[in-house]
Structure formats: structure tokens, C-alpha cells
């Protein structure tokens, strides 16, 4: 994780890591890598951590663009950089990474089916047309970051973000990204069981 952040700092000087009640040495790793760490006093979940990170970043008035990415090294820096470049030059509020726009990413068979089902669900329920439902790599401007207030503390935040893009009529686009499935990210990644939990969180608000 330290290496992930150390490389990222080269491209993006301001990196916020949210410590969501971790018990391992990842806080020390993040600080050693050169990130600012914001610490949740209790464990709240990934969606809550994203929202905290965005709120912290938005406090810097000079910050124009905001990138969310997972700290386990599954996202490529060059993809993130290209997304910010597009935000700066195209009339867009938010760019979402998609692993299905080119052939670089090789997800497992079950994972692929689950993700495709989630895409269909989101397209129907939000009216926003995307090809990948749960991609953690996103780049947005201040208008989008302010409009998207994540209330889903756990994994359902990805669907919530898509829904808010539709509700706030944000100008969105997708960008092909490469997900590197390392053993670490696979172990930390979502199990298919989470589909049940996500649907539950979305239906019972």
C-alpha cells in the first residue's frame, strides 16, 4: 500500500486516505507513502469513507478535480491521470472507470455475470447508461463532488453514486480502465454474497 501511494503522489500531490477503523499497519503505511490520513473514530464502511475523503478534499478551495481510487493497487495511475485530463478539457462533470470498454481486464466468470446484472439493474433504475457498475476509479469536478452526497455507508454506494448522477443531471462519461486483480485485491474484493446486502441496502432506506 505504501508503494501504491508513493507512486500516486508523484502524479497527484494531494492524497487523502480514510482510515475506517483499520487494525493493521495501513495508517503508518499511508503516512509513509506521503498521504494525509483522516481517521474515522469507528468503522463505518467504504461508502462512508469515500464521502469523508471527498468532504475533506473539498475543504481545500484550490482543489478543482477529485479522484476516488482503491488503495489496494488495482487501479492504474495512467488511467486516473487520463480521466482528469478529460475532465479538464471536455464538458463533463464526472468520469467513471469501466473495465468492460476494452479487453485489458480479465475478471472471473461469476464476477462478470454479477457485474453485468448490476449494470442492468442500475441502467433500469437510474436511467444512467454505464457498462460497469462497481468501479472504484472515478474522477469528478467540484460540482459533481458537491452534488453526490453518499449516504450509503457500505457497498451500495456505487449504485447510489450512479443514481445521483441521474438525479442531478450531471454530465457523465465512461473511461476504459484496467483493473489489476492481485491476490491482495482479490482477497479484499467483494464476494458475490454482497449482492444480497447491496440490494437490501438499496431497497430498505
Amino acid at each position: 500500500m505504501r508503494d501504491v501511494i508513493r507512486q500516486a503522489v508523484e502524479v497527484f500531490p494531494n492524497i487523502v486516505c480514510v482510515d475506517d477503523g483499520s487494525t493493521d499497519n495501513s495508517v503508518a503505511e499511508a503516512i509513509a507513502g506521503g498521504a494525509v490520513v483522516v481517521r474515522h473514530p469507528i468503522n463505518l464502511g467504504q461508502g462512508a469513507a469515500l464521502q469523508t475523503g471527498l468532504e475533506y478534499a473539498m475543504r481545500d478551495p484550490s482543489a478543482e478535480f477529485f479522484v476516488t481510487f482503491d488503495s489496494d493497487g488495482q487501479h492504474g495511475l495512467e488511467d486516473a491521470f487520463a480521466m482528469v485530463e478529460r475532465l479538464a478539457h471536455e464538458p463533463l462533470d464526472i468520469i467513471i472507470g469501466s473495465r468492460f470498454l476494452d479487453g485489458r481486464t480479465k475478471p472471473g466468470k461469476i464476477k462478470k455475470i454479477v457485474l453485468k446484472l448490476a449494470v442492468v439493474f442500475e441502467n433500469v433504475s437510474t436511467g444512467v447508461r454505464l457498462t460497469d457498475a462497481h468501479n472504484g476509479l472515478r474522477a469528478m469536478n467540484r460540482a459533481a463532488a458537491s452534488a453526490i452526497q453518499i449516504e450509503q455507508n457500505r457497498m451500495a454506494h456505487a449504485s447510489e453514486i450512479v443514481a445521483k448522477i441521474g438525479q442531478n443531471k450531471l454530465r457523465y462519461a465512461e473511461h476504459p480502465v484496467h483493473i489489476i486483480y492481485t491476490d491482495y485485491s482479490r482477497a479484499k474484493g467483494q464476494s458475490v454474497w454482497n449482492l444480497v446486502n447491496i440490494l437490501n441496502d438499496l431497497i430498505f432506506k
Partner: peptide, 25 residues
């Protein structure tokens, strides 16, 4: 409500901004 409280605590305890240009999570 607990989330809002915890986030407020987290942000209150967070270090100040250094202002090195663009900002990320």
C-alpha cells in the same frame, strides 16, 4: 446520525490543508 457524527469528528481531527494544488482522495 452516527455516521454524520463520526465524520464530523474525523474531519475535526484531520490535519489542515497544505494547498499543493489539486486535491484527491
Amino acid at each position: 446520525e452516527l455516521t454524520q457524527l463520526a465524520r464530523a469528528v474525523a474531519l475535526a481531527d484531520a490535519p489542515g490543508h497544505t494547498g499543493r494544488g489539486s486535491e484527491r482522495r
